[in-house]
Design a protein around this nucleic acid. Structure first.
Lengths: 246, 246
DNA sequence: CGTCGTATTGAATGGGTTCAAGTAGCGTGG
DNA sequence: CCACGCTACTTGAACCCATTCAATACGACG
C-alpha cells in the first residue's frame, strides 16, 4: 500500500539523481501504476530465458542480477538498491540473458512494459532518461570488468563498497558514514568472483586496516579517504552529474 | 570516398542483424552523413574524460574500448568490428568513462550526435533500435564478467573467439570457417585479463587441441563444436534474434 | 537448547604472473 | 642483398594470490 504509493517517488528520485526532470515529467513518473510484491532472500524474480512483461523496480532491500554456470558456480553481475530497475533492458531485449533475484528479503514494484512505453510516448524526454539509466548500468558493468580483470581482491572489495555507498547516497539511503548492506559473505564472494573463504579474509583485512566495519548487515565506512585510495575509486563512471555540459 | 558511401550501409546492416527495419528507416540510416577517417593501430579515437560530439562507426579493422590503471595496466573492455558503434552511449552520457582506440589500423566513420538525434526524431523506431544496440553491448559486458569472474583462461579465450566469430558472421565478415582477427597476443591478453606470456601459452593449447589456428591476423575455427563446448558458449546473450516474440 | 546457515581459521594445492632470456619475422637503409 | 633493429612471439623457472578441503565457532530462531 504505502510501498505502492512510494514506488513512483522512488523511481523519480532515482531518475533525478542523473537527469533533470520537469515538474510534469516528475509527476508522470510518480503516477505510474506499480504492483508491489515481496520476495525472500535468494528467491528468483525473473529467470534467464524468461520473456518478462514487467520491469522490476526495487523498493527496499538488496537485489542482484546473476548467472549460474554448470557446476553450481554463480557470478553476481550487479547489485541493486531501492530505486534501481535491474531489468529495464527487458523493454527492448525480449529474452532475459541472466536472472534477477533477491539478495536480502526485498519488496519490489512491478511495472508493465506497456505502462513504461506509454510513459515514454507521452513524455519523450523520459525515454532519454531511461535510456541513460541503462547506459549507466552498462558503465557499472565496465567498471566491474576492470576490477575482475586487473585488481586484486582487496581493491575489488573496497571498490564495491565505495560504489554502493555512493549510489545509495545519491538516492538518500545512507546516513553520514553508514548504509544498509544486507548481504552474506558468500554472496559478496559471488559478486567479486572470490571464494567465500577468501572473501572472509579480505573483509578482515579491510577491518584490520580500520577502513570499514560490516556488521549486522550494515556497512560503516570508518575512513572514506583510505577506502577510496585503496579502491582507486573515481565516481566518474556513475555519471551522477545530470548530463549537463560542463 | 567509397568508405563514406558504404558507411551507412554498414550501420544499417548492423542494426538489421538485431532489429527489423522498414525500407524507409533503412534508407534513412543509409543516408546519414558520415565523415570517414583512418587511424593507425593503438591510436586513441576518444579518451576517457572527453565529451564527444560524434559517434564513431567502425568501418574496417578492429577497435576496442579500454581503461588504463595507474601502473601501465590496461583492461580492454570490448572489441569492435565493422558496423559497431562503440561509443553510441555518448549520445546520453556526456563524459566518456573509458577510452576508445584502434587495435589494428582501422577506418572509422564519424557521425555527429546531432544527426543521430535527428534520425531518431524523424524515425522514432530507430531510437528503439539504437537503444537495443546499447543494451546488447551491455549484455556482452555481462558475459565478459562471467568469463573474468568464473572461467579459467582457456575457456575465456575460447569464448571470446566464439563470440567474435558469431558477431562477424551476423554482419557478413566471415567465410565458412575463418574471420579476420588483427590483434596481437599482448592486446588479446589485455582483453582477457591475462599476461601476454600466459595468453601465448593458452593460445598454444587451443591450437594443440586442434580447435583453432590464429595466423597472419586471421582466426580459423577448425572444430566449432569443440570450441563451443570448451567455451561453454551460448549465443543467447548476443540477442541476434530480432526481438520478435517467440 | 539443538540446529542450520553463516562466519572463521589452518594447511595444501594450483592457475596465472613475473622475471629473464631467446627466437622469429619483417621493413628499412646501407 | 644482407645487416640492422624493431616488434611480436616463445620458452623456462620461481613465486604468489586465491582456491579448495577440512574443521571449528558463532548466532539466530524455532
Amino acid at each position: 500500500m504505502s510501498d505502492s504509493a512510494n514506488a513512483g517517488e522512488r523511481l523519480a528520485r532515482r531518475i533525478e539523481s542523473t537527469f533533470r526532470l520537469t515538474a510534469e515529467e516528475r509527476q508522470a513518473v510518480r503516477a505510474v501504476p506499480v504492483a508491489a510484491r515481496v520476495y525472500e532472500a535468494h528467491q528468483d524474480i525473473v529467470r534467464e530465458g524468461d520473456r518478462p512483461v514487467h520491469c522490476c523496480l526495487v523498493l527496499s532491500g538488496l537485489a542482484c542480477r546473476y548467472k549460474s554456470l554448470d557446476e553450481g558456480a554463480r557470478q553476481i553481475l550487479s547489485l541493486h538498491v531501492a530505486g534501481d530497475v535491474p531489468d529495464l533492458q527487458s523493454l527492448h531485449l525480449g529474452v532475459m540473458d541472466h536472472s534477477l533475484a533477491a539478495v536480502s528479503p526485498i519488496t519490489a514494484g512491478l511495472i508493465t512494459h506497456e505502462h513504461v512505453h506509454g510513459l515514454i510516448e507521452r513524455h519523450p524526454r523520459l525515454g532519454a532518461a531511461l535510456w541513460r539509466l541503462t547506459l549507466i548500468d552498462s558503465s557499472i558493468f565496465r567498471q566491474w570488468i576492470i576490477g575482475l580483470g586487473q585488481k586484486d581482491a582487496l581493491r575489488r572489495m573496497a571498490h564495491l563498497f565505495c560504489e554502493l555507498f555512493t549510489r545509495m547516497q545519491a538516492v538518500g539511503l545512507t546516513d553520514a558514514r553508514a548504509c544498509p548492506l544486507p548481504i552474506t559473505q558468500g554472496d559478496l564472494g559471488d559478486a567479486l568472483g572470490l571464494s567465500a573463504v577468501h572473501t572472509n579474509r579480505v573483509l578482515q583485512e579491510l577491518r584490520a586496516r580500520g577502513l570499514i566495519t560490516l556488521d549486522r548487515r550494515r556497512l560503516t565506512i570508518l575512513d572514506w579517504d583510505g577506502l577510496r585510495t585503496a579502491a582507486e575509486f573515481d565516481p566518474l563512471y556513475l555519471h551522477q552529474d545530470r548530463g549537463e555540459a560542463s
